[in-house]
């Protein structure tokens, strides 16, 4: 919704007075000066590393030989050699099963976690939007998981999920839900589930707050009008509340989706070395540092950047089409 409103177009008219265009020039100049510090900061902390990474992805750089690297074109992405027997051997990122496994893990993780967080976040937001005693305290308390640094919460959950000492196994055993202790983070069947549990626990509050902000924009008397119209509360949610918070919801979902696509810290700490949970970021770091394949890791990072950029562009484009006349 912001995207449709924030465009200010200056239409020059033939008979515009000189004084007026001078004023406009002054304004543009002032605006420029305000923007410069931020543009410089962005260029240093985001632009330069990005360009370097993209550059390295086209070289044969290694950690030990960063500056003597030579350009090798797209070989890190895709390359083939024709053997004497006539067989073609493909190599490079796009032919690497480990890469595709990481892509699959990343997508699977993002879609499942964001879906769960959206649903739970909406439920939490609806509860927090209702009036009850101590609402302010609950609103603050619900943010705690989000405020704890990921490394800390990952370690904490790591212990809670531990197969020998973990409280979660204890509790589940006590209620008879499992018959033996499970190594949640180590077992290949449950590693992804463990990661999802922790991420949902950590990020649902953020979702809830974003959605709550949207819910608070819906005036109370619209609900009252619906009550007088005799609309069942569940119907009111689907037919009135949801359409009205959709713009806020979409923003929240896209934020979370982009964030989830580059998940690193949680997985790095909670389930290191599990191929079940290795995401693109984790894999890229492994190549950059551990395997001394700096260029290859750069190519993976660049691909991740492209995927995220593509999703953002797609979202903005879809958003524009959808919101024209759709919202208020």
């Amino acid at each position: 919704m912001a995207s449709t409103q924030s465009t200010i177009r200056i239409v020059p008219t033939g008979h515009a007075k000189r004084a007026r265009s001078e004023l406009m020039r002054q304004r543009l100049r002032a605006a420029g000066w305000f923007l410069v510090p931020m543009l410089v900061a962005l260029a240093i902390v985001a632009g330069w590393p990005l360009l370097r990474t993209i550059y390295f992805s086209f070289t044969n750089a290694s950690l030990t030989n960063l500056y003597g690297a030579e350009l090798i074109g797209f070989k890190n992405y895709l390359n083939w050699t024709v053997l004497k027997s006539g067989r073609v051997i493909w190599s490079g990122l796009l032919a690497d099963p480990v890469w595709w496994n990481a892509v699959w893990n990343t997508v699977r993780f993002s879609v499942i976690s964001v879906t769960l967080e959206t649903i739970l976040g909406t439920v939490v937001a609806l509860v927090l939007n209702a009036e009850f005693k101590g609402r302010g305290i609950v609103r603050a308390a619900i943010l705690i998981p989000w405020a704890i640094p990921t490394i800390v919460s990952a370690r904490m959950w790591g212990w809670m999920l531990n197969d020998q000492f973990g409280i979660i196994n204890d509790v589940l055993l006590m209620f008879g839900l499992i018959d033996h202790k499970i190594a949640w983070t180590a077992s290949s069947d449950t590693a992804m589930i463990a990661v999802l549990i922790v991420d949902v626990w950590k990020t649902t509050p953020f979702m809830a707050l974003l959605i709550l902000a949207g819910l608070q924009m819906v005036p109370r008397d619209i609900y009252e009008a619906a009550a007088i119209d005799g609309v069942h509360p569940v119907k009111t949610f689907w037919r009135v509340t949801l359409p009205l918070v959709r713009p806020a919801l979409m923003v929240a979902v896209i934020f979370r989706l982009l964030d989830a696509m580059r998940i690193f810290d949680l997985i790095y700490v909670l389930t290191p070395n599990s191929s079940q949970t290795k995401t693109i970021s984790v894999l890229a770091r492994e190549n950059l540092i551990d395997f001394d394949k700096f260029a290859y890791g750069s190519a993976q990072s660049t691909m991740l950047f492209l995927i995220i950029a593509l999703m953002t562009i797609l979202y903005i484009w879809l958003g524009k089409v959808r919101f024209d006349g759709g919202d208020r």
Partner: peptide
């Protein structure tokens, strides 16, 4: 009795139309 069963209709100061 809930509002919808009272046989009433109400016009709000802020109109309270469904914006979408």
């Amino acid at each position: 009795l809930p509002p919808s069963k009272r046989g009433i209709a109400m016009v709000f100061q802020s109109y309270a139309l469904y914006p979408h």
